[in-house]
Design a protein around this nucleic acid. Sequence first.
DNA 1: TATCTAGTTCAATGGATATTGAACTAGTGC
DNA 2: GCACTAGTTCAATATCCATTGAACTAGATA
Lengths: 123, 123
Amino acid sequence: MSLPHPETDQITLPNVLAALGDDTRLAIIGCLARCDASGGLVCGQFSGLTSKTNLTYHVAKLREAGVINVRPEGTKRRVTLRRDDLDQRFPGFLDSVIATAIDLPAVETTMRELASATEPGSA
Amino acid sequence: MSLPHPETDQITLPNVLAALGDDTRLAIIGCLARCDASGGLVCGQFSGLTSKTNLTYHVAKLREAGVINVRPEGTKRRVTLRRDDLDQRFPGFLDSVIATAIDLPAVETTMRELASATEPGSA
DNA sequence: TATCTAGTTCAATGGATATTGAACTAGTGC
DNA sequence: GCACTAGTTCAATATCCATTGAACTAGATA
């Protein structure tokens, strides 16, 4: 872990709520919720949501609040949800947020783009 | 209901999260969670949290997001949590937030003030 | 009617937050 | 070494948000 992440017990509800109270960041969480089982996503895969610079900003916000984990992987950054940590800290919270966030319009759109980008013949 | 409140199905997760992502408002929710069974609270009872003007502002934010109900009662405004509506819309969400919000320092302090203000002999 | 209480409205302010573009850095592969 | 990719940093801006104080309104009470 080369980037600073808060310890589990440093994660606070006000910070997490503030981090999630933004459309772009909520969409990022929605996308992650949909494909976290497959090992998360890298920043570039959220490019449909906003600019590259702005993504760096929002991903950092989520990381600093303790909502996601960001792991360098070559020139990329692999982003995953801190499910276990959040469940431990605020039981039931993440699941209830995800249940709604997973169906947000911005998430639907991004996932569609992501799917078509990995279709055979598009590479 | 003389003040505008969103219908249950108009309540959105981004709005609710943004409304709760503020220390003052989270403290209001914590206080309400503690004594909602006893019929809610009136604005003035949150006076330990911030100024009167600022309370009007934050209470309006929570109301507009659909988190609380505000009912005129003489010159006062009775504030209650929209538990049923939120449970219907985002199952489990409110409970998980309350579990943590109820123990916030600002809530503890406010509840102590509230308790001492209703002690026999203080009226 | 006069006064008090509880809360609102409004305009102004300060501070935080989101967004942008240009320049930059760290890996990867030729 | 060179070019490419992925993401960062920085400074600037634009916007939104929380906070304040003064003046105000509605209802209760004497």
